[in-house]
Every structure is written in structure tokens, then in C-alpha cells.
Simulated assay, not measured.
Amino acid sequence: MRSRKFSKGKKFIFFLPVVALIAAALGYVVMYLWNCILPEVTHAGRINFWQALGLLVLCRILFGNFNKGNGGPGNHFREKAWGLRSKWDSMNEEERAKFKEEYKRRCGGWGHRNKE
């Protein structure tokens, strides 16, 4: 059997057109949605393709990148949750019961302060 491994150069050659195609598709989707919805709802002007791509870049700058958990703003919370899960798994039953009671004391009544 032949191995189907690509060299880094071949991967890059395929990667570049795929990124350009995805950017173009996203740009056209943003442009289409903007031009179909916002002019009638908010009386905003129509935009062209390059303005739509600019909006995508602006959203990426303001709200973070569009990755799937490889870092970024939301990753901090996933790391904390994973750390809590491993901590929970290493507790014995007595420690878990103590943790649950402390959690109920601190967070039990959402919107209501527990009187101590």
C-alpha cells in the first residue's frame, strides 16, 4: 500500500485556495444577509462584498477569533471546567459531600442572598 502523506508544500497549496474560498463565501453570505435584512429594518445602507469582508474582520477583532477551542477567549473557561472535573474525580465521598454543601451555601439561591 502506498502512503498518502502530503508534504508541507502540498498542504499549503491546497490550504490557500480553501481559505480564500471560505472567506469569499462568508463575505457573500454577510453581504446577502445585510442587504436583505438591514436596509428594510433599520434603514441602513446596502454594502458591497469588500465592506462585508471588512465587517467579518471587525467582528473577529472585537469578539474574538472563529476557532473551535484552540485557544481564544472561551478556552479559559473550558480549562477551568476541566480542572474542576479532574478535581472532582480525585475527591472521596466525604470531600464531595463537603464540596456540595459549600456550593449550596454559596450558590444555592440564585438571585437571593443566603443570610448567615
Results as ranks from 00 to 15, higher is better:
S3E: 12
G74Q: 09
V57Q: 07
G83M: 05
L33K: 03
W88G: 01
L58E: 05
G74N: 10
F14D: 14
G45E: 10
R60S: 12
K87T: 11
R4I: 08
G74Y: 02
I22T: 10
K104C: 04
N92Y: 00
F15I: 08
V41K: 15
G108F: 02
K104R: 12
K11V: 13
Y32W: 15
K10V: 09
M31L: 10
A20T: 10
G69I: 00
Q51N: 03
P73K: 12
F66S: 11
Q51E: 14
A52M: 04
G64A: 02
R96I: 03
W82R: 13
K87D: 13
R60I: 04
H76P: 00
R105S: 06
I47S: 02
S90H: 11
G83V: 00
P17G: 00
K104Y: 09
K87G: 10
N48C: 06
I13T: 10
G69P: 09
F63Y: 09
V41N: 07
P73A: 12
F63A: 07
H43A: 09
E95F: 00
F66W: 09
H43Y: 04
E93L: 03
S90C: 05
F63G: 09
R2C: 03
E101Q: 13
R60F: 06
N67M: 00
K8Y: 07
R85H: 12
S7P: 00
L56M: 13
N48A: 11
P73V: 09
A23K: 05
N75G: 00
I22N: 07
C107F: 14
G71Q: 06
V57W: 11
R106W: 03
E79I: 05
F14I: 12
D89K: 14
E94W: 01
A20W: 06
M31D: 08
G64C: 05
K104G: 01
W50S: 13
F15T: 11
R106Q: 13
